[in-house]
Design a protein around this nucleic acid. Structure first.
Lengths: 259, 259
DNA sequence: CGGGTGCGTTCCTGTCTTCGGAACGCAGCA
DNA sequence: TGCTGCGTTCCGAAGACAGGAACGCACCCG
């Protein structure tokens, strides 16, 4: 029931896409449940599901007749990712960072008011607790998100507008706190987060900037709070250096394109 | 122009999904080009693209007005993958296999007449040459594909029907050769491929079987042809063992579900 | 057993969505 | 300056699509 119609959009296609989004929260849904969520008749939901299933964007579980996301989405999604320029420039660099830091490495961008993790190179030390890895978190809850917001007013504004849901006792929970944190990040040149999204987890992030000084992305490393204390200086140095290298690498390729 | 209409399907939604598939082959396409490929009017293509873009399944490049796959596809695709049961049971096991074998590890399933790589744990030794990693290859060209076909007549049939495109001098190129190879795989219990999709690359694969002895997936490792000669026996043993372990793990969870 | 309730699926009919064609403004090019 | 391609917008006619009702099927519970 959101803004179901964009100017010049197709209603049935829009419904089909909204239908896909229903499966973000729920792993499996039946026809009736989907119809309820979309606010359409059961027959309509059934038609949509059938069509999506014919292209494998949705698959039907023969066990119980319910539907779930299809693997063709995985195929298309992998392509979308593989074609992101940031990723192309960063793979080796991130691998090196994992090696040196010993922590789990992330590459992330802002997507609306959220942090979207594009890449994740896990290590056992960083993996713990994060078993069910989520690709999307609110920008204010992750070190990556804070690093991006500090250098991208648009992203920061989007998060302010969307509010500040709380995950742990340490999560940023209001605008004033958020703005203060961003100022601190700008002063330091990097962002940290300790148990802000999950207890026992700590992370350090640095922004990847374009030639206007606006954040394109962030590189972060995640480990346990206990490990952070001992090696903080070194970890910060590693992350900032990696982000700087990626920044210049992106700028050089942008300059080439401009020719 | 394929089977654009499924029984009970929505035409405009089907077009939208076919539109997405246009971007499998091409990274960027303009409105006119898309219209040409779909066989629809330019205005129709524009409407479809606008609607898809409103949900970020498609993104427009502000540089040149052309369109490309959007990152929301990556989000949905990641979810689809994360929910595949096979994957859940295999992650640790695959990591161990990478450690022990020193080669790049893949988990793959059959999708129509193709091998679809669900998981890939790269190593430097296995990575070389495969820079631009493709998620989908014809079943007859990969060791994984052959391991699956040997224990899944349906997949084998799909490949026979689709024909045998050739990639190198060693690629299987006709049905007789294919059937002979599958017989050999069944006799051995594992499959190999040497320079069948790319020169210098060799791989070993073993099938993951359900309780009827039909292949659900395959586990494979990939390295250079040179390395294979020395350690073949050991590599074969590692892969077969990993696949067996995954098989029993899947069977046990299936048995639980049946209760 | 038998009625009740949920499910996924199917059919039909009226209406509102969607389609193609034509025209626009804008580049780049000769 | 005219040509040709692009992405975008507008419109009216044609027909695809939405909703509602009904079906067959499991399941549950009295």
């Amino acid at each position: 029931m959101a803004d179901n119609d964009v100017e010049g959009g197709l209603k049935s296609v829009a419904s089909a896409l909204d239908l896909l989004d229903c499966f973000v929260e729920e792993e499996e849904l039946g026809v009736s449940e989907v119809a309820r969520r979309l606010g359409v008749a059961k027959s309509t939901a059934h038609r949509l599901l059938t069509t999506l299933a014919s292209r494998k964007l949705i698959e039907q579980n023969p066990r119980n007749g319910k539907y779930r996301l299809g693997l063709h989405l995985f195929e298309l999604g992998s392509l979308a990712l593989a074609r992101v320029e940031l990723r192309r420039h960063s793979v080796l660099l991130l691998e090196e960072l994992r090696e040196l830091s010993g922590w789990t490495v992330h590459l992330s961008i802002a997507q609306g008011a959220d942090t979207l993790f594009l890449e994740r190179l896990p290590t056992l030390r960083g993996l713990q607790a994060m078993e069910e890895f989520r690709r999307k978190w609110p920008l204010h809850a992750t070190s990556s998100g804070k690093a991006i917001c500090a250098y991208d007013p648009e992203a920061a504004q989007a998060r302010i507008k969307a509010g500040f849901p709380v995950f742990t006792a340490h999560t940023i929970s209001n605008e004033a706190q958020f703005r203060a944190e961003l100022a601190k990040v700008r002063k330091q040149g990097y962002a940290t987060a300790s148990e802000e999204v999950m207890t026992r987890l700590a992370s350090v992030a640095a922004p990847v900037l374009d030639n206007h000084g606006v954040a394109l992305a962030a590189i972060s490393i995640t480990g346990s709070v206990m490990d952070l204390g001992q090696h903080q200086d070194r970890q910060v140095r590693l992350v900032t250096m990696a982000a700087k290298r990626l920044s210049t690498s992106m700028m050089m390729s942008a300059a080439q394109l401009a020719d």
